[in-house]
Nucleic acid binder design. Structure first.
Lengths: 202, 202
DNA sequence: TGTACATCAGTGAACGCGCGTTCACTGATGTAC
DNA sequence: TGTACATCAGTGAACGCGCGTTCACTGATGTAC
């Protein structure tokens, strides 16, 4: 069959989206090309007309996932961050809903452990997209902070907390982890206080 | 061949140690039973005389890895934590050497992402061992802190930082991540200040 | 002391299975005449 | 307007491979006599 002009790049985008969700939900190793194409009503053979290898798909899926997250951070604010934007980011990141829907959630807690063992192409794409994400996060920080450094602490801390909250078996521990970290990071980074009397972590 | 009395449990321990290292270094999915037994000079068939399944091995390997980490936290101190013990834990956790040797490092940044997707047996073993680890970490905290809560923040934060430091492609970013988080967590949790004038995170 | 036997940790062929990747092929449709 | 053809996104059989797991077997040695 012959297809309309943009059909192919539309299919490519559908593969990429489905991969980006499935990898976050089930892990890179557990999602096969066959599964992926089948979930789109296609067959596995067609995949290689869109991507040269599974590895290339993983790299692009990581980048896309992080790029979308960065956009979500930036989108709501047109003229500088409104009061409470950072607080809202922390609240929704360290939330039961985010914990329970990894497919549409942040790439870091879902895949960073795997990415550390992936080949260079994947790690490079992840790194580039992470830099952009960190910059977007830093832009939400109160200006009297060491913004870029604080963004590193906040992003890695929230990613670690969400990852553990997902790994853990015990719902109470998982909820407590989210609640405690949410309160800690809000106090440390999103409280509007003077530079000298910074928030207490307690 | 007939073997001396404790030979079998000695072999079991060797399998468990090798698995615990290999899983952290290469990920659960990338280490096959064949690889594992071959690395001990054995053949794959013998594995099932020691463990009922790969899943059971993963569960025990996680538990063992975390238990050893908890022991390492507790061991040096016999009569309460000496000054600077927590500082030392943070320094050695968020260190380039730890980042570069995942096989002997902490289980959380290496495997927690995978564990979140593993079946109940594995997650349960991980959770139990994590509770013990968190208790050991809390015992190092200055007593004026909300120890148990602070241990959650510190453990998850350090795990997230190490995981990202490993995933990232760019040595400068990776080093900066470690340095910034090291300084942040030391100030927030290991500075000996009065309860009212807590450490500033900046 | 010497001999026959029971033990059992470890062996390795075999099982069914799914993976990533390749490639000759299909067939609906836009285009050229 | 009608017809022949070129295009090319998608198909599905086939490739070699390694996986987790099973099981009949091996053979050195402790033990019973």
């Amino acid at each position: 069959m012959r297809y309309p002009k943009e059909h192919k790049e539309e299919t490519r985008r559908r593969i990429l989206d489905a991969a980006s969700w499935a990898f976050r939900a089930h892990g890179v190793a557990e999602v096969s090309i066959g599964d992926l194409m089948r979930s789109l009503g296609l067959t596995h053979g067609g995949f290689y007309a869109h991507f040269p290898s599974k590895e290339a798909l993983v790299a692009e899926a990581c980048r896309r996932g992080l790029d979308q997250a960065a956009e979500r951070l930036t989108a709501p604010l047109d003229g500088g961050p409104p009061e409470g934007a950072l607080r809202q980011v922390i609240d929704s990141y360290l939330d039961a809903r985010h914990r329970d829907t990894p497919a549409t959630g942040c790439v870091m807690p879902a895949l960073a452990g795997d990415i550390a063992r992936e080949p260079g192409e994947v790690r490079h794409a992840f790194t580039e997209a992470l830099q952009a994400y960190l910059a977007a996060l830093a832009a939400l920080m109160p200006s009297w902070h060491g913004r870029a450094d604080d963004a590193l602490v906040l992003a890695s801390g929230m990613a670690g907390a969400l990852m553990l909250a997902r790994a853990v078996d015990d719902p109470d521990l998982s909820d407590r982890l989210l609640a405690v970290c949410r309160s800690f990071y809000t106090t440390a980074f999103a409280d509007n206080e003077a530079p000298d009397g910074l928030a207490s972590p307690a």
